[in-house]
């Protein structure tokens, strides 16, 4: 299976990942190589196999509903690129 430059552009857009146009081809080649590796999987019949999402065969633990966190905005926003009056700022969002 091989991916085209166009495929890579589409995936990169979904992932919001900027890729230099001169690198697209090399990514297409690398990803195609990975997909080739994965075709091995299709050789094995897995019809009645239950997918395994997680190595732990355990139930989710549930937390008691209590407020444990205090306001820590100053500390959190000290590492933010752009804030104003407690808000994180981003370029204008158009809905």
């Amino acid at each position: 299976m091989s991916l085209t430059a166009d495929d890579v552009n589409k995936i990169a857009h979904l992932a919001r990942l900027g890729i230099d146009s001169q690198d697209i081809k090399s990514y297409a080649k690398d990803l195609s190589g990975m997909l080739d590796l994965m075709t091995q999987m299709s050789e094995l019949n897995t019809d009645n196999v239950e997918p395994m999402a997680h190595p732990m065969d355990q139930a989710q633990r549930l937390r008691t509903d209590v407020v444990t966190e205090q306001n820590n905005r100053e500390k959190f926003q000290a590492i933010a690129p752009q804030v104003d009056t407690g808000l994180y700022l981003v370029p204008k969002v158009i809905e």
Binding site: S42, L44, T46, V49, P51
Partner: peptide, 12 residues
């Protein structure tokens, strides 16, 4: 084809 298949193989 990829994610679920891989999870099944993970089980095996």
């Amino acid at each position: 084809a990829y994610y679920i298949k891989a999870q099944k193989i993970r089980r095996l």
